[in-house]
């Protein structure tokens, strides 16, 4: 059995697709089924799955629609990495496969499992609603259709890349915060929020931002960059997240959230010592009361295990701190000027 393609000269490889299986009606826990098929160069993971479904096992369940990388239906984990099955070449995956000849196919993480490779997308939609992921036009409904907003190419370029998002949820699946906290806003929703907020036609900026700085919001991101690395459309998602944070500090000031205070404390440490003074970071971020209530048990455990960070007086300045401070001041100056020229 061979999938049709035109590169007969390239030969075929026997590939085992190790597919995650779970049918909630009969299975108490998930398992894997192996399907081995010969695959030629140029065949995608989706075409292979279609072949398995049509010719070997009709019960293997997955979503697929456009098959051209634009609808976002077939997000899944291929050898551990979240991506679109329809744009992923089997041979490319094989070349990097840890187990030779085996491709493991699993559902996206961080969304409730429905069956086999199908996960529930509703939580993502609910978050789009919570964070008002739409433009609330400054134009009254009665006036609509009469004239265009005049928008510069420069403004268009601010959200152009972000509007490439096809909500495939690869970033959601890869996000390390979501693994710990399912309520976290999630990278795709932050990206969309950013896209709306830099659109001059939108009037919800303040309201959206007020929601984004609450718990489970923009300050929960830990900059692991996995969302950006896994984005199937190569969207710089972290730029959007940073954009929202800068926006929050600029328009809401430093004092309203622990996130912004954390960022400020970070910056002060770096400027002063060239490294972090970790022992006091929680106090400066969340205050003494919160730290005593929430971190004391952990601090005690850390002491028992001799894992405590050094007390502030023992944190020496990093080597070359003078040159570093100079550079730091220049950078800060640059950023300030940048902000001014944007306004």
């Amino acid at each position: 059995m061979t999938l049709p393609t035109d590169q007969h000269t390239e030969g075929k490889k026997n590939v085992t697709f190790r597919v995650f299986r779970f049918n909630p009606q009969v299975d108490s826990k998930p398992y894997f089924d192996d399907y081995t098929i010969p695959v030629e160069k140029g065949i995608t993971v989706l075409r292979s799955l279609n072949y398995i479904k049509e010719h070997i096992d009709g019960s293997v369940s997955f979503r697929a629609f456009c098959q051209a990388g634009i609808c976002g239906s077939c997000g899944m984990r291929v050898n551990g990495l979240s991506q679109l099955a329809c744009t992923t070449q089997v041979w490319d995956v094989l070349a990097k496969s840890r187990e030779p000849g085996i491709i493991k196919v699993e559902p996206l993480r961080n969304l409730p499992l429905i069956k086999d490779l199908i996960v529930d997308m509703d939580p993502l939609v609910d978050k789009m609603k919570r964070y008002s992921n739409w433009v609330d036009s400054t134009m009254p409904e009665a006036e609509m259709g009469k004239k265009e907003f005049l928008i510069s190419e420069e403004e268009f370029l601010r959200y152009d890349k972000a509007t490439d998002c096809i909500l495939c949820a690869s970033c959601v699946s890869e996000c390390s915060i979501l693994r710990a906290n399912k309520e976290y806003v999630s990278p795709a929703v932050l990206l969309k929020s950013y896209r709306m907020s830099v659109d001059s036609r939108d009037s919800l900026h303040e309201q959206r931002l007020a929601e984004l700085v609450k718990d489970h919001g923009v300050w929960d991101c830990t900059h692991c960059y996995r969302c950006q690395e896994s984005c199937v459309k190569s969207i710089p998602i972290m730029d959007a997240i940073h954009g929202i944070r800068e926006d929050a500090i600029e328009s809401r000031g430093m004092k309203d959230t622990s996130g912004s205070k954390h960022a400020e404390a970070f910056m002060m440490d770096i400027e002063k010592k060239g490294k972090l003074v970790e022992a006091t970071l929680p106090i400066r971020t969340n205050g003494v009361v919160w730290t005593m209530q929430n971190l004391l048990p952990m601090a005690l455990k850390m002491i028992m295990k001799r894992r405590t960070p050094p007390p502030p007086p023992l944190v020496k300045s990093a080597k070359g701190i003078k040159i570093f401070r100079q550079m730091f001041r220049e950078m800060t100056e640059h950023v300030k000027q940048d902000h001014k020229s944007h306004q």
Binding site: S137, K146, F156, Y159, D202
Partner: peptide
């Protein structure tokens, strides 16, 4: 023309001309 403007008015991104129109 009316419906394209309406779509524009509710937030559809469009590429722009030099004079900032659609």
């Amino acid at each position: 023309p009316k419906i394209i403007r309406e779509l524009e008015n509710i937030g559809t991104p469009w590429s722009r001309m030099e004079d900032n129109t659609i």
